[in-house]
């Protein structure tokens, strides 16, 4: 299994760079993962999404879908697409330290 170092911490990742163990994730790692995804600066808007994903996972054991982010997290879908262009579900999950989303919606 490949590994990567973010914020001085070496963690296991899959072939696409998603963290294998979401418990390895720390907030300090997020900006560095984001940079790899072409997001140079994590704004409060980004953090709002990241924190919701982390919190919702604690509650449901699953990462939220785009629909759930809107309905349960109050994150408008168009805003999510602006924050994480070219793949909002994948990119936000990756930056929040989770594996690639497996659902179709």
């Amino acid at each position: 299994m490949p590994s990567k170092t973010f914020a001085g911490k070496t963690v296991e990742v899959d072939n696409e760079g998603f963290l294998v163990n979401h418990d390895d994730w720390t907030e300090e790692m997020a900006p560095e993962i984001a940079k790899e995804e072409g997001i140079d600066n994590l704004t409060e808007g980004h953090w709002n999404v990241i924190r919701f994903i982390r919190k919702d996972y604690q509650k449901t054991g699953q990462i939220p879908t785009i629909r759930r982010m809107k309905n349960a997290g109050g994150i408008p879908t168009n805003e999510l697409y602006e924050l994480f262009p070219q793949g909002p579900a994948k990119k936000s999950a990756k930056i929040a330290g989770f594996g690639k989303p497996q659902g179709c919606v």
Partner: peptide
């Protein structure tokens, strides 16, 4: 259960997605 919305909401979702 799969978070596939009712039609009206789905149309809104695909539109908001661009």
């Amino acid at each position: 259960k799969l978070d596939i919305p009712p039609l009206g909401e789905f149309i809104e979702m695909v539109f908001d997605a661009g």
